[in-house]
Design a protein around this nucleic acid. Structure first.
Lengths: 343, 343
DNA sequence: ATTATTTATGCAATCGATTGCACAAACAAA
DNA sequence: TTTGTTTGTGCAATCGATTGCATAAATAAT
């Protein structure tokens, strides 16, 4: 099997009667190597089918060309798209991406970061788990002088680069849109969880109402886990409460979908009776009936941005590490579920 | 910054007045180390916050504990779920997963495999691109004696372990189900592409008709790219042709969705006028109106299986490499789009 | 022609862990 | 007691590439 013993720089060196140092330098474009030698080395390397051993290189140089990427859930469209975005930038720069998922469990998150460090990744790009309160593991990354970029779910407790979406703005846009469509009694589905993003969405909702001179009615705000089932029960509760409402802005597409189902079951027309807006622009939103208006977070672009911040940090390590917070602007994707007026 | 110079086995050795060899053996559970020494080593390791350098270990031992995973598109539910499945098994065995995507471009696929080899992964798990006709790059993996597991999109040209779904069976189930619902004029959306999976689905469709004594009408078979738009145009063509049909079995959920849209636009009732079944059980299928019957491929389980085959191959390398083809059974998820009878 | 400088390579240590072989000490068998 | 085993460690090479320092050869400066 091991007939094709891998060729090393020593094989090339031997064949050309030079040393491995010379070969190494030639291959790495060191200017102190003569043109003749360089060409000979490259030629022989090709002939012998030489492929550099990145492990050996990594051991000596300390650079593995690996990025550890940690997400809560790999197979959710938002996160897999971000992974995709990161992968695209990383690959173009000859870096590879190792992925792990925390499943929102703190221990998994901690272990994954440790595993990344043991694998000697050159840095980490991560989104924090919902229940994470301690950040020692991330702090360690920074203490080692490695780049750490947080995306979407971040924390002010870590002094490091971040990419987030302007959740406030997304919610503001969504709510304003509903108001422009003539809605005045707009319910909101949110969550009690301590993640900033939901607080921001709530704030955007409240401020948009205010700015349009609509008084907020706290009876129209419902808290839960923002899953499909939560949306269903919130909608039931809304209907049972007898409260007056003509729109729902949900901080999640799933909950919006649950509401859509219940409303349709009760014979209500969307958007005529109740206009509906979700959040995240999940792939399914364009396939519902009616298609669901939502807020696009541009996850692939977010991945690109995260990767760019990563490489910025990686290359500026010499000096002071510059931490930068990038805020991306979301876009409201208007679909039939909220379009009461012909535009 | 580099205050915390990483501790190595030599630091531990020095502190205990033994050699690095002893420390290494103690840490790796070598039985030739005395209990006292082992305990002392472990204690000191903990005290000094020792973390093994996997790169050094990899260089010497030849094992990186890395799996290269190649998919056509990271951010598609089917593939991201498979990644998730692989990650779960790999992480539990202290392996990490590097992901790359080919975007169905041959060059990308070739480069990704090369990059994996340079990173010295311990093996590769991959799904072949749609347009791939040459397999030299994969052949090289095998020649190096590395495990290679193909999933979903495989090829008979490579002698290696594979996991596939029984596409034939999935299509057979889907078609039979439509027949049981009373449909006899069942259209089929497929593609001309040379991938086995679509041929198998077509075969399942044909055989199910046959087995139920229904003559196939080739006028009801449409070929395209199985995207939403293809589904739409096939549906238009079907309607325009004036052909008699009471059901559509599409080899893709997207195309089925396109058809659903057109049929609804034309005022046809689903499933009363036309029953509809898709394939792949995309996340959106449960959110359409009516919800779309589809064939579940159990992607996470497929990932588990692929990972298990991988580790089997990895551990049996000594002897002859056993190549194993695993065929998973799909499940028909019946939803309202095809339910004409109350069950 | 002699000294100074540049240019192109070689030498040898290093990154951190692993491992075959050797060997002293402790113990068992004769 | 003497010989034979077992047990526990050490020695030193090795994995493959990188890199600071030294040096010979070639070229430039005086």
């Amino acid at each position: 099997m091991e007939n094709t013993k891998k060729t090393t720089i020593h094989d090339i060196a031997e064949k050309l009667n030079v040393t491995a140092s010379t070969v190494s330098r030639a291959l790495n474009g060191n200017p102190r190597i003569s043109d003749t030698t360089r060409k000979a080395v490259l030629k022989t390397a090709r002939e012998l089918n030489y492929e550099p051993n990145q492990i050996a290189s990594a051991l000596r140089s300390g650079r593995t060309q690996l990025i550890g990427m940690l997400v809560p859930t790999i197979n959710r469209a938002f996160f897999s798209s971000i992974i995709r975005g990161v992968e695209e930038v990383a690959n173009s720069l000859d870096y590879r991406v190792i992925v792990s998922q925390s499943n929102e469990v703190f221990d998994n998150e901690e272990n994954a970061v440790k595993a990344f460090l043991n694998a000697r990744v050159d840095g980490i790009i991560a989104s924090i788990g919902k229940n994470t309160q301690r950040f020692d593991h991330y702090q360690q990354v920074l203490e080692r002088g490695l780049p750490l970029v947080l995306f979407d779910r971040t924390t002010p407790n870590l002094q490091t680069s971040q990419v987030v979406i302007d959740d406030y703005q997304g919610a503001y846009l969504a709510t304003s849109h509903l108001i422009e469509q003539g809605c005045t009694r707009i319910a909101h589905f949110t969550t009690e969880r301590k993640i900033d993003i939901y607080k921001e969405r709530y704030r955007g909702y409240v401020n948009a109402l205010e700015d349009h001179g609509i008084e907020q009615d706290v009876a129209l705000v419902f808290s839960g886990n923002l899953q499909l089932e939560d949306g269903r029960s919130h909608a039931q509760d809304l209907l049972n409460s007898g409260a007056d409402f003509d729109a729902i802005f949900s901080a999640s597409d799933y909950a919006a979908m649950g509401a859509m189902q219940v409303l349709k079951e009760k014979g209500l027309k969307i958007p005529q009776d109740v206009a509906l807006v979700g959040f995240l622009n999940e792939p399914f939103t364009s396939f519902t009936d009616p298609p669901l208006t939502s807020v696009n977070q541009f996850p692939i672009e977010m991945g690109h941005t995260a990767a760019n911040l990563f490489f910025n940090a990686l290359n500026s390590e010499k000096k002071k590490i510059v931490t930068k917070k990038t805020v991306l602007q979301p876009e409201l994707i208007v679909r039939a579920s909220s379009l009461k007026k012909k535009s």
